[in-house]
Amino acid sequence: MDPELKIELSRQGIFTTTLEELYNWGRKNSVWPLTFGLACCAIEMIATTMARYDLARFGAEVFRPSPRQADLMIVAGTVTKKMAPQIVRLYNQMPEPKYVIAMGACAISGGPFKQGYNVLKGIDRYIPVDVHIPGCPPRPEALMDAFITLQKKIDAQHLTGADRPRHLNADEPSEFVVPEYGAHDLVPSKNLKLWNIIYKTTPNGPATAGEDGPGKD
């Protein structure tokens, strides 16, 4: 539908929409995160859900304790190599469509523990991350910013066509390789196919909160 006509109609008091917009509007306002925290970032995540910052305003107050009911995985904290297989397995067990916010320096890169032998250098080595938030730890406002960024991303997804998201494409995988404990490192140490998947389905790549993407204006 022509956007000019839509604006003109809304001026006259006629609200028009498409099935896709209605679908995305419903989806972006009912993103249910998975209940789990890994380190100190989780405390900020908990603060975000409480009365002062109130994530419920964005429809994400229902933290689900089972991956079967969750849409969003907030990786809040340091991912140790001991914990990484469990996180990937939980991500695999979530139903589509599923999204990931990597919260804090540790979750996006290993952070201050990057040199450590037992810390994963970013969860995006194994699962596709939709929004990265820098910070150590990020403030609740930063998590809300990431959440709004994710909502914009969901809002822009198309139901059909070649650029439709991964979960609507039957050829794209829903499961990613779960690493196993090796002699010195996780095996495999990273999932190289992951970056192809991310860049194929989202033209601008993964978003970073607080930074306006090139396709925004």
Partner: peptide
């Protein structure tokens, strides 16, 4: 619209 995507880990 949305295709089914079962898998060994997902169904575990």
């Amino acid at each position: 619209f949305s295709p089914r995507k079962p898998g060994p880990v997902k169904n575990a």
